[in-house]
Nucleic acid binder design. Structure first.
Lengths: 77, 77
DNA sequence: GTGTATTTGTTCGTATGTATC
DNA sequence: CGATACATACGAACAAATACA
Protein backbone atom coordinates (compact mmCIF):
# COMPACT_ATOMS: atom_id res chain seq x y z
CA UNK A 1 0.00 0.00 0.00
CA UNK A 2 2.87 2.33 0.88
CA UNK A 3 5.99 2.43 -1.27
CA UNK A 4 8.93 3.64 0.83
CA UNK A 5 11.23 3.70 -2.18
CA UNK A 6 8.93 5.56 -4.53
CA UNK A 7 9.20 9.14 -5.70
CA UNK A 8 6.33 10.28 -3.53
CA UNK A 9 7.27 11.01 0.10
CA UNK A 10 5.89 8.42 2.50
CA UNK A 11 4.06 10.99 4.58
CA UNK A 12 2.29 12.17 1.46
CA UNK A 13 1.32 8.66 0.49
CA UNK A 14 -0.17 8.12 3.93
CA UNK A 15 -1.98 11.44 3.74
CA UNK A 16 -3.39 10.53 0.36
CA UNK A 17 -4.72 7.22 1.63
CA UNK A 18 -6.45 8.96 4.54
CA UNK A 19 -7.74 11.69 2.24
CA UNK A 20 -9.18 8.96 0.07
CA UNK A 21 -11.03 7.51 3.02
CA UNK A 22 -12.45 10.90 3.83
CA UNK A 23 -13.56 11.44 0.24
CA UNK A 24 -15.03 7.96 0.19
CA UNK A 25 -16.91 8.56 3.40
CA UNK A 26 -15.14 5.94 5.46
CA UNK A 27 -14.10 8.79 7.71
CA UNK A 28 -16.93 11.19 8.44
CA UNK A 29 -16.96 14.80 9.70
CA UNK A 30 -16.33 15.34 13.41
CA UNK A 31 -15.30 11.76 13.87
CA UNK A 32 -11.69 11.01 14.78
CA UNK A 33 -9.22 9.91 12.18
CA UNK A 34 -6.84 7.12 13.22
CA UNK A 35 -4.54 8.17 16.03
CA UNK A 36 -0.85 8.64 15.40
CA UNK A 37 -0.19 5.30 17.05
CA UNK A 38 -2.78 3.64 14.82
CA UNK A 39 -1.21 5.15 11.71
CA UNK A 40 2.20 3.95 12.81
CA UNK A 41 0.74 0.51 13.34
CA UNK A 42 -1.23 0.28 10.11
CA UNK A 43 1.24 1.76 7.64
CA UNK A 44 4.43 0.70 9.32
CA UNK A 45 5.81 4.22 9.41
CA UNK A 46 7.61 6.21 12.07
CA UNK A 47 5.63 8.45 14.33
CA UNK A 48 7.18 11.56 12.91
CA UNK A 49 5.97 10.46 9.49
CA UNK A 50 2.48 9.90 10.80
CA UNK A 51 2.45 13.35 12.35
CA UNK A 52 3.65 14.87 9.13
CA UNK A 53 0.90 13.12 7.19
CA UNK A 54 -1.74 14.46 9.58
CA UNK A 55 -0.22 17.92 9.32
CA UNK A 56 -0.59 17.71 5.58
CA UNK A 57 -4.27 16.86 5.87
CA UNK A 58 -4.63 19.77 8.24
CA UNK A 59 -2.97 22.11 5.79
CA UNK A 60 -5.37 20.89 3.15
CA UNK A 61 -8.26 21.76 5.46
CA UNK A 62 -9.48 18.19 5.54
CA UNK A 63 -9.07 17.71 9.26
CA UNK A 64 -8.63 19.73 12.42
CA UNK A 65 -6.73 18.87 15.57
CA UNK A 66 -7.92 19.54 19.09
CA UNK A 67 -4.88 19.76 21.38
CA UNK A 68 -4.56 16.91 23.84
CA UNK A 69 -7.62 15.26 22.41
CA UNK A 70 -7.41 14.13 18.85
CA UNK A 71 -7.71 14.92 15.16
CA UNK A 72 -11.09 15.01 13.46
CA UNK A 73 -12.52 15.05 9.97
CA UNK A 74 -13.78 18.34 8.61
CA UNK A 75 -13.46 21.82 10.01
CA UNK A 76 -13.83 23.09 13.59
CA UNK A 77 -16.95 25.02 14.56
CA UNK B 1 -26.72 12.68 23.70
CA UNK B 2 -23.06 12.60 24.72
CA UNK B 3 -20.39 11.77 22.16
CA UNK B 4 -17.31 10.34 23.90
CA UNK B 5 -15.30 10.34 20.67
CA UNK B 6 -16.19 13.87 19.60
CA UNK B 7 -13.86 16.84 19.52
CA UNK B 8 -15.55 18.45 22.52
CA UNK B 9 -14.46 17.02 25.89
CA UNK B 10 -17.15 14.93 27.54
CA UNK B 11 -17.18 17.02 30.70
CA UNK B 12 -17.85 20.09 28.62
CA UNK B 13 -20.68 18.40 26.75
CA UNK B 14 -22.29 17.45 30.05
CA UNK B 15 -21.82 20.96 31.41
CA UNK B 16 -23.43 22.41 28.30
CA UNK B 17 -26.47 20.17 28.65
CA UNK B 18 -26.93 21.23 32.27
CA UNK B 19 -26.35 24.87 31.39
CA UNK B 20 -29.07 24.51 28.79
CA UNK B 21 -31.49 23.23 31.39
CA UNK B 22 -30.70 26.18 33.61
CA UNK B 23 -31.19 28.62 30.74
CA UNK B 24 -34.41 26.86 29.83
CA UNK B 25 -35.69 27.02 33.36
CA UNK B 26 -35.81 23.29 33.97
CA UNK B 27 -33.38 23.93 36.78
CA UNK B 28 -34.31 26.92 38.88
CA UNK B 29 -32.31 29.08 41.31
CA UNK B 30 -31.60 27.64 44.75
CA UNK B 31 -32.79 24.25 43.67
CA UNK B 32 -30.26 21.42 43.41
CA UNK B 33 -28.87 20.31 40.11
CA UNK B 34 -28.51 16.53 39.65
CA UNK B 35 -26.03 14.98 42.08
CA UNK B 36 -22.75 13.63 40.81
CA UNK B 37 -24.17 10.12 41.10
CA UNK B 38 -27.23 11.16 39.10
CA UNK B 39 -25.06 12.69 36.39
CA UNK B 40 -23.02 9.50 36.25
CA UNK B 41 -26.24 7.54 35.89
CA UNK B 42 -27.90 9.77 33.30
CA UNK B 43 -24.98 10.50 31.01
CA UNK B 44 -23.03 7.32 31.48
CA UNK B 45 -19.84 9.10 32.46
CA UNK B 46 -17.31 8.54 35.21
CA UNK B 47 -17.66 10.45 38.43
CA UNK B 48 -14.49 12.40 37.78
CA UNK B 49 -16.04 13.60 34.54
CA UNK B 50 -19.26 14.54 36.31
CA UNK B 51 -17.29 16.52 38.86
CA UNK B 52 -15.39 18.35 36.16
CA UNK B 53 -18.65 19.26 34.47
CA UNK B 54 -20.03 20.71 37.70
CA UNK B 55 -16.76 22.54 38.34
CA UNK B 56 -17.11 24.12 34.92
CA UNK B 57 -20.60 25.35 35.72
CA UNK B 58 -19.27 26.70 39.00
CA UNK B 59 -16.48 28.54 37.19
CA UNK B 60 -19.09 30.04 34.90
CA UNK B 61 -20.97 31.29 37.95
CA UNK B 62 -24.06 29.30 37.06
CA UNK B 63 -24.13 27.19 40.21
CA UNK B 64 -22.72 27.05 43.71
CA UNK B 65 -21.79 24.03 45.78
CA UNK B 66 -22.48 23.47 49.44
CA UNK B 67 -20.09 20.81 50.79
CA UNK B 68 -21.76 17.56 51.77
CA UNK B 69 -25.07 19.01 50.68
CA UNK B 70 -25.24 19.50 46.98
CA UNK B 71 -24.87 21.95 44.14
CA UNK B 72 -27.50 24.58 43.48
CA UNK B 73 -28.54 26.82 40.65
CA UNK B 74 -27.60 30.48 40.88
CA UNK B 75 -25.33 32.25 43.32
CA UNK B 76 -24.97 31.80 47.09
CA UNK B 77 -26.49 34.40 49.39
C1' DG C 1 -28.57 7.51 70.24
C1' DT C 2 -27.78 4.35 66.29
C1' DG C 3 -27.61 2.96 61.72
C1' DT C 4 -28.14 3.77 56.97
C1' DA C 5 -28.21 6.40 52.87
C1' DT C 6 -26.85 10.41 50.31
C1' DT C 7 -23.60 13.87 48.76
C1' DT C 8 -19.38 16.12 48.10
C1' DG C 9 -14.14 15.77 48.86
C1' DT C 10 -9.87 13.37 47.96
C1' DT C 11 -6.52 10.21 46.22
C1' DC C 12 -4.65 6.60 43.49
C1' DG C 13 -4.17 3.82 39.27
C1' DT C 14 -4.85 2.82 34.28
C1' DA C 15 -5.54 4.08 29.52
C1' DT C 16 -5.47 6.99 25.36
C1' DG C 17 -4.49 11.22 22.72
C1' DT C 18 -1.48 14.94 21.30
C1' DA C 19 2.82 17.99 22.28
C1' DT C 20 7.51 18.37 22.87
C1' DC C 21 12.34 17.21 23.07
C1' DC D 1 13.57 6.33 17.62
C1' DG D 2 12.96 6.79 22.18
C1' DA D 3 11.30 9.57 26.61
C1' DT D 4 8.58 12.87 28.99
C1' DA D 5 4.71 16.09 29.69
C1' DC D 6 -0.08 17.40 29.59
C1' DA D 7 -5.17 16.82 29.03
C1' DT D 8 -8.88 13.80 29.01
C1' DA D 9 -11.59 9.81 30.70
C1' DC D 10 -12.69 5.77 33.39
C1' DG D 11 -12.63 3.05 37.73
C1' DA D 12 -12.13 2.23 42.48
C1' DA D 13 -11.72 3.28 47.20
C1' DC D 14 -12.08 5.91 51.34
C1' DA D 15 -13.24 10.13 54.16
C1' DA D 16 -16.44 13.60 56.08
C1' DA D 17 -20.77 15.96 56.69
C1' DT D 18 -25.56 15.75 56.35
C1' DA D 19 -30.32 13.77 56.55
C1' DC D 20 -33.55 10.66 58.09
C1' DA D 21 -35.97 6.67 59.93
Amino acid sequence: MIDPDGPVPVYQQVADVLAGRIAKGDLVPHRPIPSEAAIVQEFGVARGTARRAVALLRDRGLVYTVPQRGTYVGQPE
